[in-house]
Simulated scan of single mutants.
Amino acid sequence: MKVHLPTGEPNAPKHKAKTMQDWLRDKSLNVLEWPGQRPDLNQTEHLWRDLKIAVQQRPPSNLTNLERICREKWEKLPKYRCNKLVASYPRRLQAVITAKGASTKY
């Protein structure tokens, strides 16, 4: 079974640790090769972009106002947006594989 460890590249020190390697082997899991620093594959980055756009539409006048606006906008991010990001993940992953790790339209 292939799995993605969302903590980064499979060669990251935390994945090379003996305890992690033992755990993966015991579970019969293989780590999917994963390019590091891929915002196009990180759903949270897409949500942060949505939040930034929302804040730009209503620029804050100070830090307190910025925090209030961010909290309001974050709470109003529609659930369907999260569902859409999850549903699009296989397509985005395939785009990265096809591009051999190069930039994608996502």
Results as ranks from 00 to 15, higher is better:
M1S: 10
K2P: 09
K2N: 06
L5Q: 02
L5V: 09
P6H: 07
T7Q: 11
T7R: 14
G8S: 06
E9N: 08
P10M: 02
A12T: 08
A12M: 12
P13H: 07
K14N: 14
K16I: 07
K16F: 02
K16A: 10
A17I: 01
K18V: 01
K18G: 00
T19E: 15
T19W: 13
M20L: 05
M20Q: 05
Q21F: 00
Q21K: 11
D22P: 00
D22T: 04
D22R: 10
W23N: 03
W23V: 01
L24F: 11
L24W: 05
R25D: 12
R25T: 05
K27C: 09
S28G: 08
N30D: 13
N30F: 07
V31C: 05
V31D: 04
V31Q: 08
E33M: 10
E33R: 11
W34Y: 12
W34P: 03
P35M: 00
P35H: 04
P35F: 02
G36M: 04
R38K: 12
R38Q: 10
L41G: 00
Q43Y: 04
T44L: 07
H46W: 01
H46N: 03
H46A: 02
L47N: 06
L47H: 04
L47Y: 01
W48T: 07
W48F: 13
L51Q: 01
L51S: 04
L51N: 01
V55T: 06
V55L: 10
Q56I: 07
Q56T: 14
Q56S: 14
Q57A: 14
Q57S: 12
Q57F: 10
R58Y: 13
P60T: 11
L63V: 15
L63F: 14
L63P: 01
L63D: 10
T64L: 15
N65Y: 03
N65G: 11
N65Q: 13
R68M: 13
R68W: 12
E72D: 13
E72L: 09
K73M: 12
W74L: 12
E75M: 04
P78Y: 05
P78C: 11
Y80K: 09
Y80I: 09
R81G: 00
R81S: 06
C82E: 05
K84H: 11
K84Q: 11
L85N: 15
L85G: 15
V86Q: 03
A87H: 07
A87Y: 02
A87P: 00
A87Q: 11
P90I: 05
P90N: 02
R91H: 08
R91V: 12
R92S: 01
L93S: 08
I97H: 10
I97D: 11
I97R: 14
T98F: 02
A99Y: 06
A99P: 05
A102V: 01
S103T: 09
S103C: 07
T104C: 04
K105W: 08
K105M: 10
